[in-house]
Amino acid sequence: MTAPLRLLGWTLVGTAIVVATAWVGPSLAGERGDLILIELRLPRALAGALVGAVLSAAGAVVQILLQNPLATPSTVGTTAGATLGVLAALVLGSGSTLLGFPLLPAAAFIGALTVTLVISAVASRNRARTEDVLLAGIALTLATGAVSSTLRLGVDQITSLSALRWSLGSLTMVGMDRIAMLTPFVVITLLGLVWLIRPLEVLVSGTERARTRGVEVPRIRTLGLGFASLGVAACVATCGPIAFVGLICPHIVRRIVGAAPRILIPGSMLLGAVFLPLCDSIGRVLVDQREIPVGVVTAALGAPVLFWLVTRRSRN
């Protein structure tokens, strides 16, 4: 079977799983069952698929660009930057648009882009080691986290509580209106990342090698981090920060089908699109009568995976 046919087959399987997750959770029996399914569960599953695809593909691309398997939009601070942007927008409570753009995605994008530019500057230095990039990401995550906390302190309890809930990362309140807002960003991000596959096929063998083989590395790095930031910012604005998807999914794909970007990136999109709705449905059934935010579920699954990766790397 050819690669496009295989991809189509897996996409159909993935779609079936995503749709099936809508039935996981408290029973849909009763007169309002159909309403809950159509108005709440299916949009959640769809939003989870879109967000999961973006976070996972962005993780795969950032790992190649920074030459580090532990780099993701979360670990290099992009998510924290987007979070700070959204919190600032929530707390400052200005109008619903910023220079004509919807406020929350615009604020998230500005936050994500600011952090990404700093990280890119560190990564583009000639003698920058990948550890430097990750440490810079940790420093920026902590710094933006401190500012976010300070912003929360300066507001009333209700706003602070809603900011805290939002910061846990959840698909609960995502309806078709937010999906409509998210979709253009998702499409641009995914098309952009797919468009970069060809130079990434060279970059995966090393930055310096790629430069000597004709890749304009700074341009590709800027575009890659830019598309990843755009997508992550839109996802954070839609459902809050959701960690570890960009770490776990590309690693699973890499272990199954190898590290070639032409397979890794679409494969990561597909797995992320299935993984996040699955985690969301797990969050619905894990504790009786209560729902665990999907961001908590992915973190609970992702942290052990990160620990395993670090110990495996140190063994090697």
């Binding site: 096929e201 995966v204 310096e208 090698r209 083989r213 890499r254 190898g258 590290a259």
Partner: peptide
């Protein structure tokens, strides 16, 4: 280069084809 190539699981034919970018 002096340093060895990638430690990622890449097919040999992909690594060589990439040099024709």
């Amino acid at each position: 280069p002096q340093e060895g190539s990638t430690t990622d699981a890449l097919l040999v034919e992909d690594v060589v084809a990439a040099s024709r970018y």
